[in-house]
Design a protein around this nucleic acid. Sequence first.
DNA 1: AGCCATAGGTTGACGCATCAACCCGAGCCC
DNA 2: GGGCTCGGGTTGATGCGTCAACCTATGGCT
Lengths: 166, 166
Amino acid sequence: MRQPMARMRPMAEEPWLDETQQRAWRAYLAMSKRLSTHLGRQLQRKFDLSPQDFEILVNLSEVPGRRMRAADLGRATQWEKSRLSHQLSRMERRGLVGREAVPGARYPEVVLTEQGYAAIVRAAPTHAASVRAMFADVLGPELLDRFAEACEAISERLEEHESDPC
Amino acid sequence: MRQPMARMRPMAEEPWLDETQQRAWRAYLAMSKRLSTHLGRQLQRKFDLSPQDFEILVNLSEVPGRRMRAADLGRATQWEKSRLSHQLSRMERRGLVGREAVPGARYPEVVLTEQGYAAIVRAAPTHAASVRAMFADVLGPELLDRFAEACEAISERLEEHESDPC
DNA sequence: AGCCATAGGTTGACGCATCAACCCGAGCCC
DNA sequence: GGGCTCGGGTTGATGCGTCAACCTATGGCT
């Protein structure tokens, strides 16, 4: 399987990534594409939920009252406000969440409906099982720790540059 | 930063993922989200190319004649045919690629235009540099190898299940 | 010949992501 | 008061991803 973003030499002259780097980069790209495809497809086909739906549902289900201000939900998911707003509108249309005005407060709260709660309770165990089967169990505890360290290191590096002008 | 898909316990009763698994899964999710955001934003802002544009351009630029049947391009990218067709239509509109009929053949070829070629030559070095800076150099050669092995193992596991009914 | 399956390709509809623009009220400074 | 910025939130446009439906040569089978 060819992984195009991995080949950094459209003119085949300078080796912008060496052998080791190429291999790792291509392996990572292939793996992450497959993993998200697999998990997303499973959620969609078995539970009629997109990964985005799932993420919102999980966050709401964890909090007491199953309700939250949109801004807090945005912080929890690290989503931009407009993305969140669009997503909530779609989910509201489908009856998974509701937006309810709060008497004294300026902004309404997003609430998990019964239907939304039922959906997450149905889907979560299978999803977790897949994460174990396709990810955690493949590496095992020790490797998993090293893998986590690697991810954290890259994350930190990226975080440093988050405010760069690019 | 909370990573909602990482918390597999909406009801907080059974620990579907243990501590180690949680940590690795969350670290992976955070890292991959940041990495793709960073690389994608850079391509978009500096070169007016989406990651998808870039992938197509790289593949076409590598092949002699800078032209290819759509089906082969599909195999190279592992994209579904309809996705590819839509993408090519958009890129054709922007003058990055063209679809040219081949005299004796049934199907036309997708060709990289001069403009498309110029775009990839402009963008590729910066992109490769970012992959090194944000990914390869962070881990270093030895860790990079282990990381690649982990990714390959997960990929293989997923490949086995690609034909599953889900 | 006639029939059928298959591969290559396009289209339309809908959900999702991002950007820019906008609205509104709270707090602040003058 | 008057004007400021700022945070919270919505909207619309456009690009992207997926699914289902469809078209049409080719190649195989009878």
